[in-house]
């Protein structure tokens, strides 16, 4: 990013190639709408480009860009508050339990939704996507930041503006639910 700030366009191309997949998947999984995800994805990168002149390496670039993406998602949710899913607001009792635990039970089994003609790989990918979609947003966010962004607990906590222990608890819940959902694939 510093090289790009200095005027090296090739440095931006390298940076973009490194983060295009993880950032896109993060946004696509978080918003659940491929078209909207692409729009947000484009906006995030435009923000990165416009912020190059004032960029300072106070944190890892991944932390910075995923934080921008998260803020853009929140802006989008605020603009479309009436469409917000219920699970985005954490329950008052348990900060770690961001959504109803029985959500998975209410979802149809991934194997029932996938047509038999679909390739096995697509089937597995679909199941993973569904398992992620079934997670509460905060847990899914922590999981995606850890898996796609490679962020540490402290970085995730800083990016999501919450405590380290809360982040740790959310991640543990997310892993547990995903393992339960994808048990037969592991």
């Amino acid at each position: 990013m510093l090289a790009y700030r200095a005027g090296d366009a090739q440095a931006f191309t390298t940076l973009y190639g490194r983060y295009r997949g993880p950032l896109h998947r993060y946004l696509a999984r978080q918003c659940g709408n491929p078209t909207l995800a692409e729009e947000l994805y484009h906006e995030v990168w435009i923000k990165v480009i416009n912020a190059r002149a004032h960029y300072e390496p106070l944190a890892r670039f991944s932390t910075w860009i995923f934080r921008i993406a998260r803020h853009r998602l929140i802006d989008h949710y605020r603009q479309h508050a009436h469409q917000l899913p219920l699970q985005f607001a954490p329950p008052a009792g348990d900060p770690a339990a961001d959504g109803p635990d029985d959500l998975l039970a209410n979802l149809p089994a991934p194997s029932h939704e996938t047509p038999h003609a679909v390739h096995e790989r697509q089937h597995v990918a679909e199941r993973i996507s569904l398992a992620l979609a079934a997670l509460p947003s905060a847990q899914r966010e922590v999981f995606l930041l850890a898996e796609e962004g490679g962020l540490t607990l402290d970085e995730i906590a800083a990016a999501t503006d919450c405590g380290r222990e809360t982040t740790k608890s959310r991640l543990r819940y997310a892993l547990s639910k995903l393992r339960h959902s994808l048990q037969d694939l592991l």
Partner: peptide
């Protein structure tokens, strides 16, 4: 498992 199958990318 996630990294193996999460391969979708932007257009």
């Amino acid at each position: 498992l996630y990294r193996q199958f999460a391969t979708d990318e932007p257009s």
